[in-house]
Nucleic acid binder design. Structure first.
Lengths: 211, 211
DNA sequence: TAGATTGTTAATCGATTAACAATC
DNA sequence: TAGATTGTTAATCGATTAACAATC
């Protein structure tokens, strides 16, 4: 992995978007792209894209552009995608089972290795390749399956407790779909994926348009 | 609605979080809260919270704090939540049907009024109170149901086209679950809710921890 | 009045943009 | 060499933080 100063958080958040843009170019057989072309695909300005990429080191060629395959590899490397990430989904209701069936997980090396639920009617049922484990066994399952990332698809009331148990079981990365702010130690990374927050932000903008 | 300068985008994005914190206080029967208490619940600093709230006008009482019910009302007002928002979900696969069944929608005045899908096996089936309409009828359905917000739960390949049709049908707010950057006119607001992006950001941080 | 806490100002920090020298 | 495009620097902008006067 390239050395250098830390990559700004705002840039990190855009790297996956660049990676996707590169993926679609690669699929179309495009070998080289300029910052202008890439930026267009990614929905950012060319200056911003070049600045972001510069944090990963110097991987373009002046006068030519970026080699698509090479840049894909560099971004994937910076994001830590050259390894397997083992994911547990906690809460196998509507949303949880949709996530369990989501193909996008495996595409980038994220492997769902465990499903957990509190409901005894759901525990033991099969979803895809996996059998749902009991929430009571969370600690054992996380250890056995060497889970790195926890996805919370439980009701709001249960989210903090499940989060605490995941953290105690050494999971340091959590994707939270429950509409609550999780309180965690500073070494734990929580990303929120909160539908109702997003809708409310949309409402704000929509309401300003037609007053 | 209170007049004043525009609310910074970063503040807007936190208002829903404050609203949720206030909701849980209200439910517990708490009538008043200080910026310190609210900030703790929302996972931000007290200074930031006060600054954010100051954009909505002056709704606290020095020496006392904020009236929970009043502040709820003010924030909801600023976000445009004192009206009904009519939502169409396009794409009724795993994710789309999970979203259709998601209770969190209705809680804040977001009413799902239409489900659309391209698959003729799905069209005509009932999900909750709604019957799935054909994607071909998108324009008619959007008009009849007076849809304000479109939720895209279609495959990546279909997302841009559906987006274009929604925009042409006068939908100006789009929540996009598909892993693509949508190209839209500047008067259209797109929020992305992209699972794989979030996982990749988590991977970045996790990878830095254990090198 | 004394204690508490807001609302706001000023200082700091980080992110974006514009411009261009370096260089393929 | 001439044209194109990166990588970086400096200027600008916006967001966060700290501090405190205003005021309940």
């Amino acid at each position: 992995m390239p050395a250098g100063r830390p990559i700004p958080e705002a840039s990190v958040a855009r790297l996956p978007v660049y990676l996707r843009a590169l993926g679609s170019l690669a699929q179309r057989g495009v070998a080289t792209a300029s910052s202008e072309e890439l930026a267009q695909l990614a929905g950012v300005t060319a200056a911003k894209l070049r600045k972001d990429l510069s944090y990963l080191g110097s991987h373009g060629t002046r006068g030519v552009g970026y080699d698509v395959a090479l840049l894909q590899d560099r971004i994937a490397g910076s994001l830590g995608l050259n390894r397997e990430w083992r994911v547990a989904i906690v809460g196998v209701g509507n949303l949880g089972s949709a996530l369990a069936g989501y193909a996008g997980f495996s595409e980038r090396g994220f492997q769902v290795v465990a499903l957990l639920d509190v409901d005894s009617h759901v525990v033991g049922t099969r979803i895809g390749e996996l059998v749902v484990d009991a929430l009571a066994d969370l600690e054992a399952v996380v250890a056995e399956q060497r889970v790195h990332i926890g996805v919370l698809a439980v009701p709001a009331e249960a989210a903090q407790e499940v989060c605490d148990r995941l953290v105690a079981a050494n999971v340091r990365s959590i994707l939270n779909f429950a509409p609550v702010v999780l309180q965690v130690a500073p070494d734990v990374t929580v990303r929120k994926a909160d539908l109702s927050t997003e809708l409310q932000i949309l409402a704000f903008h929509a309401d300003k348009e037609k007053p």
